[in-house]
Simulated scan of single mutants.
Amino acid sequence: MKKVYFLCTGNSCRSQMAEGYAKQILPANNFKIESAGVEAHGLNPMAIKVMAEDGVDISKQYSKLIDLQYFNTADVIITLCGDAKDKCPMIPAQTKSLHWPLSDPAQTMGTIEEQLQEFRNIRDQIKALITELK
């Protein structure tokens, strides 16, 4: 079974959406999926909302700090922002490392609808990237 770890700064948006899609798209008998952050900022309500729009419920997920035991035994570590890439522990040599430089939708300014649209854009990019992992 392949262990995949999605890492982001606060484990509130991008890595949570990636975890949700990976659990839905990747075969559960072949993949163990987790996400974490270099900090724990709590699950962003807009991430929950836009994922629900696409039929993925992440409302029971929660923001977590990096678990070094899981990190050190992961087969694939995927960073979803430069901050996580720069601050995460040294990735073990045997671990495949991918970097998906996605903008942080939580930093979007503007109306609620404009913010939601950016969350949807990032959500759709993540879904496409997860689909390529199959």
Rank of each mutant, 00 (worst) to 15 (best):
E118D: 14
A47T: 00
E39F: 03
Q115M: 15
C81Y: 10
Q94Y: 09
Y21Q: 01
I25K: 07
K3L: 07
I66G: 03
Q115D: 08
V38S: 02
N44Y: 04
M46N: 00
Y70N: 06
K2S: 09
S103P: 15
A128V: 08
I78S: 08
A47W: 04
Y70W: 15
L116Q: 12
K127S: 10
K32I: 12
S35E: 08
F31D: 00
G37H: 03
R123H: 09
T131G: 05
E19N: 05
Q94A: 10
G55A: 06
D67N: 15
M17A: 05
N72L: 04
T108G: 12
K49H: 11
L43V: 05
C13D: 02
P105W: 12
T131Q: 15
E114M: 14
D86I: 06
L98N: 08
V4T: 06
T73A: 13
I25W: 13
V50T: 02
N11R: 01
D104F: 14
P92I: 11
I66Q: 06
A47M: 04
L65D: 00
K32A: 06
Q107M: 15
D75F: 09
K3S: 08
Q24W: 02
K134M: 06
E19H: 00
S103N: 14
T9M: 06
T79F: 12
N72H: 13
I122L: 11
T9A: 01
S63W: 03
G37M: 03
A28C: 05
W100G: 01
Q107C: 13
Q115A: 13
I66R: 10
D54Q: 14
V38L: 02
N11K: 02
Y5M: 15
A18D: 08
V56W: 11
E19F: 07
M109W: 11
A128Q: 15
P92T: 09
M90D: 07
E118K: 06
Q69E: 15
Q107N: 14
K127A: 12
V38T: 08
I78P: 07
E39A: 09
I78R: 13
E53N: 06
P27F: 06
F71N: 06
K2Y: 14
H41P: 03
S103Q: 15
K85W: 08
K23E: 11
N121L: 12
I58N: 01
Q61V: 03
V4I: 15
S59D: 08
P92M: 13
R123P: 00
K32M: 11
I66W: 10
Q115W: 02
E53H: 08
I33Q: 03
D83E: 13
D75I: 10
N11I: 02
L133C: 05
K60M: 13
N29L: 07
L7D: 00
T73H: 13
T73N: 15
L133T: 02
Q69L: 10
V38D: 01
E39M: 06
V4D: 04
V38M: 04
S15Q: 05
R123G: 01
H99M: 12
A22R: 03
P101N: 13
K127W: 07
Q117G: 00
S12D: 00
A128R: 09
V50S: 03
T9D: 02
S103E: 15
R123A: 03
L80F: 12
D57G: 00
I58T: 05
I77R: 12
S97A: 14
